[in-house]
Design a protein around this nucleic acid. Structure first.
Length: 318
DNA sequence: AAGACGAAAGTGGTTGA
DNA sequence: TCAACAACTTTCGTCTT
């Protein structure tokens, strides 16, 4: 579990809760995924020069690594200008030579099935991640997972899209900003079944193991979609934590648990939403919400409180 | 009329022989 | 590989607000 902690500030975009992720030094909005304070990476030189001569001797070594570029942004480009280093035009012979050099450079850079593959895949990851409003670091993790998959020749026989989608799904879970398989499948060209199957393969082959998604991770985002305040979020989280503690949460779908916790929280706090509304955003059916919440209310002994809450609602008190 | 309820049958995925 | 199984969905008729 990453060390995350609630912040006092609100998300400027959606007023959702902000979490501080100390491992990354960032503020993250739990509802919309906005990254408020990216870790301050010092892109300047990591040394001080006392005169220009010294500055020249200590060149900063290259551009920052960007995992979203297929070659991590580290390869060389040959400039296109037909001039030499001092700026004068090149003779015809040299010019054609340079042209061939450039040609080769390009070919080498995007050479081989793997590099070409990664370019397409990263494009796909970027596209889907953008539609799901995921922060940059999730994309980067997905790109890294994809790269590892490619290096082990696991893409053969599988579509780029399915592996890209599965990588993104895994990256979301790793970063506690889970998206359901359905949500990813909706933006991907691949169906849920395939993504799920590929995801399981990745886990097995890359020897990764992610703990099952906690329903709590879904709460901020779902509550945001339902335009519920933080008080309701906290209540829902508290309910889930009690349920987890009493161990009747295992084997149940995390989205179903999250959905019914939200349902209970909204009625207890007089901000009622219909089962239909909650079912819509959480991607489970009303029936599941009913079953889950009946179960939870029973085991947590919340019957009187629920009845009372409904009664208060009648009075018109809000 | 809309929402909540629950029974019954169907679906897809996991597990264990 | 197959069957058993639990969770979840679909569908639909009924009750409550």
């Amino acid at each position: 579990m990453a060390k995350e902690q609630e912040e006092k500030r609100e998300c400027p975009e959606c007023q959702g809760r902000l979490y501080r992720d100390y491992a990354r030094g960032e503020l993250i909005c739990g509802s919309c995924g906005l990254v408020i304070n990216e870790k301050q990476i010092d892109r300047g030189p990591e040394w001080r020069a006392f005169d220009s001569q010294e500055r020249d001797r200590r060149a900063r070594t290259g551009a920052p690594i960007n995992p979203l570029l297929h070659d991590k942004g580290l390869s060389t480009e040959i400039g296109w200008k037909d001039r030499d280093a001092s700026g004068s035009f090149l003779p015809m012979k040299k010019r054609s030579q340079m042209y061939r050099l450039r040609q080769w450079q390009r070919r080498i850079r995007v050479s081989g099935a793997i590099e070409r593959n990664k370019m397409l895949a990263f494009q796909e990851i970027g596209r889907v991640a953008a539609r799901l409003e995921l922060p940059k670091y999730v994309k980067e993790d997905a790109a890294q997972i994809y790269t590892r998959t490619a290096e082990r020749n696991l893409i053969r026989g599988r579509s780029i899209e399915s592996v890209a989608a599965a990588s993104l799904y895994a990256a979301c879970r790793m970063n506690h900003l889970p998206r359901t398989l359905d949500e990813i499948a909706q933006e991907s060209t691949v169906n849920r079944k395939h993504i799920g199957r590929t995801y399981r393969l990745l886990m097995r082959e890359l020897k990764m193991s992610l703990e099952p998604t906690s329903p709590v991770d879904y709460i901020p985002r779902f509550c945001g979609m339902l335009e519920l305040g933080r008080d309701v979020e906290l209540k829902a989280i508290k309910i889930i934590e009690m349920a987890i503690q009493q161990d009747f949460t295992s084997g149940r779908g995390p989205t179903g648990v999250a959905a019914s916790a939200i349902y209970i929280a909204t009625t207890l706090m007089n901000k009622r939403r219909t089962q239909r509304e909650i079912a819509e955003v959480t991607g489970v059916t009303e029936v599941t919400i009913r079953n889950r919440y009946k179960e939870m209310v029973g085991r947590l002994g919340l019957e009187k409180k629920m009845k009372k809450a409904v009664g208060v609602d009648e009075d018109g008190t809000v």
